[in-house]
Design a protein around this nucleic acid. Structure first.
Lengths: 204, 204, 204, 204
DNA sequence: AATGAATGAGCCTTCATTCAT
DNA sequence: GATGAATGAAGGCTCATTCAT
């Protein structure tokens, strides 16, 4: 699985070759220079195409940004869903969420970095509504999934709205630090620790 | 305690009145428009001063940004130190870190919002070195403080580098959501829950 | 008589259907958006064809513009000639010129609007020479026609070069105002007034 | 009286020197290249200033355009008012309107050319409302002035809304032709003819 | 004949920063 | 210390036109 996979899955075929090319290099630029500091010209220069072609395919800078952002989010969510489907208890679910999160970030560090960086610009741009809708959907699905497990023996912290923060908060914090080179050890090496901690943090 | 307090503590006196004025309005602009989207002219317009005056006091845009950023970070750190000094056990320390974090964010929402937004620009700008040094210092101090408590009875997760993420990760995640209006309940209302969860997440 | 008539007369048959289609919608765009502001893409979007097809039929933007312009001018001139042919005195001729002008504008408001708007762009574009030739021809024909009437009893203002302005100046001025919605009453309602005034204005 | 006079009257003093300079050269460019075809860069190059200075003073291209347009319109109107104030009968008033119109165009051919060219762009731009208000005012004032003369002996054509067209239509038509070099004789040479014709065209 | 992806020169505008007053 | 006019590099974006399919 590589970064091209994410794009090929979503923009398949020969016709979309340039589109994928542009997106791939735009991702690089956004990460390397920052979202705001990335210019259309910089992207153009990297993929050796023309401004016109970029605008033909994406309309404007926001178009590239949001296309990338939603592709990344989509891939991350699909990955989560796939893993979560296999679980049969709350404990397994928590372990699955944490592990798949860490695995995805380590497998796609560039996409992960971008996801952290691009959220705020997208949330302020013309696609903010679409972002909101997607967030609400993801939240709802997660909630239903987790609440579907009956817990006879174990008491869980209340209310639900803090639970997502408890589950992924530490992993997210560590992954950000890792992507910024503030820590060196791969998040994958801490799958067990973060999963177990998340599980413990939920109990009461 | 209000937002003016942070500035008055650090830039006291009549001579610095304009400086405080500019910083206060710049904070507002950065939060409202975004760091990159805030122009010197926008700040000028809000405090009814002149471009010249702003440059006289801060040299350039980065000057305003970093002054604000380090003031905010400083205040947050001071608050933490003050609270942490009172503690006598690891458990108390964890509770203190989490609680003071949540309290500070709720007491200074504008400064907190700014802190999240401005970190990345500052980390890329000319003050990145100073930021790094400060981060390292804070990390070291925290580490020493926490390791100073002997824990005979309780086993704590290893290694240390994931511990900060376990402690503040969930709180940070929730506070971001709160400041972005994605959740409504004040982080203060969850002091107990986040503290207890952090404490449990550390144990093994 | 409708706007399609002008195009059908000049570009008849099934083969020219797309050509007429493009011209019709281009006319709309030029009037609605302005000549300069109208883009090939806007025209394409309105007739649901392709850029390629437009270029195939007209070569470039000026091609569409001048085709429309000369079609409109032609129709107006034909109308005038037809009316003028029936007259037998200078007075009748003046009445005929003014009336047919007003009638044509009211019958073809879109084409009239376009004629006013497009003259200057055409006069600056690659067809300026053709425009000049046509203007000179029309001027000459009108002059000959008017001078063909002997006027024994009535003295007419001199020299000839101001006469066209005296005849159509007021009507043109009023029609522009009407097309711009600055006045509401139809020019047709003032056929008698403008004709009589033109006739009087020529006498000495 | 020269073209600089119009600007000096409205933007006096040393402080406004650059402003006048820019306007003067912008007028030249608009006339020479056409309103749409004139670029900020072309204006900049002609007055040897910077883009920034232009935007500092006028905000944008429309700002320059409308400043010039309203200055020209204002000057023309002032001239008319001044002449009209001396008149004591309807006949004198008509002669005065026509003559002052012709005189103004001949005295300020560049400004006159511009006035014809710029009306439509201004009427479509952000200052369209101001244009409308001014037009309405001018129309009202003219109407009141003309209706203030009692005409016992002479019957005048009705209704009033066609009268402005009858008075200035021919002169305007001829002046446009003159400015476009389609006729050579100066409009001033036809003061008497256009005035007398206008006067006759009103009678019934 | 028709299509629409691709080109790239050029436009308007922004904005951090300087500097004479 | 304060002011704001002036600078000019740079960015996002448009659009007429071409051309391979």
């Amino acid at each position: 699985m590589n970064k091209d996979k994410i794009l090929e899955d979503r923009f398949p075929g020969r016709r979309a070759a340039l589109k994928r090319e542009i997106l791939e290099h735009a991702l690089y630029c956004f990460n390397e220079l920052g979202v705001e500091a990335t210019t259309i010209d910089a992207i153009k220069a990297r993929c050796d195409t023309s401004v016109g072609a970029i605008y033909h395919h994406f309309g404007n800078k926001e178009g590239i940004l949001s296309t990338l952002f939603f592709a990344a989010q989509d891939d991350q969510r699909q990955n989560l869903e796939h893993e979560l489907a296999k679980t049969n208890s709350l404990r397994e679910a928590i372990y699955s969420i944490v592990s798949s999160y860490l695995d995805w970030v380590v497998a796609q560090p560039e996409w992960a970095r971008f996801l952290y960086q691009a959220r705020s610009p997208v949330a302020k741009g013309p696609f903010r509504q679409e972002l909101k809708v997607r967030n609400a959907q993801n939240y709802q699905e997660l909630k239903e999934k987790l609440l579907s497990f009956e817990n006879k023996d174990i008491k869980i912290v209340q209310p639900f709205e803090i639970i997502p923060s408890l589950i992924v908060g530490p992993s997210e914090n560590y992954c950000r630090a890792w992507l910024a080179n503030r820590v060196r050890t791969s998040p994958r090496d801490y799958r067990e620790e973060f999963s177990e901690s998340a599980w413990r943090s939920l109990q009461r």
